[in-house]
């Protein structure tokens, strides 16, 4: 259907754990602890590490993960574990049409722009049964962007409470997953997970429209 492959950095076996890439990483996504690892929830996919080292090469990245710790990837084997389906109890009430409410908790507006793009004629998410709605009260799913700023946290909690129960939360982009580059700023903890529970994590900065759509479809089991 849609060709939505993005690439993430990965080391080959010649990596000598010198730590140069870790020092160059702007988002602090790379770390060396019993081997080289990348936290895709923090990675902004700037590929600065690839410029600094010959042993880092691009591999296809997972579109989404259901657990935060699945996004910490040490080898190509870990990538395969990411894209699993949501359990049936979570998706039972929602059925085959997913109504999505977008919630900005302080993003830079690139994620909003990409979510707006999902409605344009190239992607047209409504043909898949997904729809972006105007009110939290109409929604099944909250699509959260941004690092949860302190100023927005009270309003974000109200939105969460206004969505009918059996709701799901999607963290869209590096900021929402881990705080991204703003983790040390005027924000609540690391990512939105400190404020309310998250069901689907879509890494990227920003995730492209096709990846947002594919992630939702795959997580709900509409495509395999």
């Amino acid at each position: 259907m849609i060709d939505a492959i993005i690439e993430m950095p990965m080391v080959d076996e010649k990596c000598d754990r010198c730590g140069k890439c870790v020092r160059n990483c702007a988002s602090g996504a790379l770390f060396i602890k019993d081997g080289w690892s990348i936290d895709l929830g923090k990675c902004i996919l700037c590929y600065d590490c690839m410029d600094s080292c010959d042993h880092i090469f691009p591999v296809p990245a997972p579109h989404y993960a259901l657990n935060r710790k699945d996004l910490v990837i040490s080898s190509s084997e870990d990538i395969k574990k990411c894209e699993t389906e949501l359990s049936k109890d979570k998706t039972k009430r929602i059925g085959k049409s997913v109504f999505i409410r977008e919630l900005d908790t302080g993003s830079c507006n690139a994620c909003e722009s990409e979510i707006n793009c999902t409605s344009n004629k190239y992607y047209d998410l409504e043909r898949f049964g997904l729809r972006i709605v105007s009110s939290p009260r109409h929604a099944d799913v909250i699509l959260v962007t941004g690092p949860m700023t302190r100023n927005m946290s009270a309003a974000a909690k109200k939105v969460y409470d206004a969505v009918p129960d059996d709701k799901l939360v999607i963290a869209c982009g590096a900021c929402a997953i881990s705080g991204g580059l703003f983790a040390g700023g005027d924000v609540m903890g690391n990512g939105i997970e400190d404020t309310f529970p998250v069901d689907i994590f879509i890494p990227g900065c920003p995730p492209s429209p096709e990846r947002i759509i594919v992630s939702v479809l795959k997580a709900f089991g509409f495509i395999h």
Binding site: G106, G146, T149, N151, L181, G185, D186, V187
Partner: peptide, 11 residues
Amino acid sequence: LGFTHRGIERL
């Protein structure tokens, strides 16, 4: 405004 204040100048 100010809901997206992330403290960038301090960062």
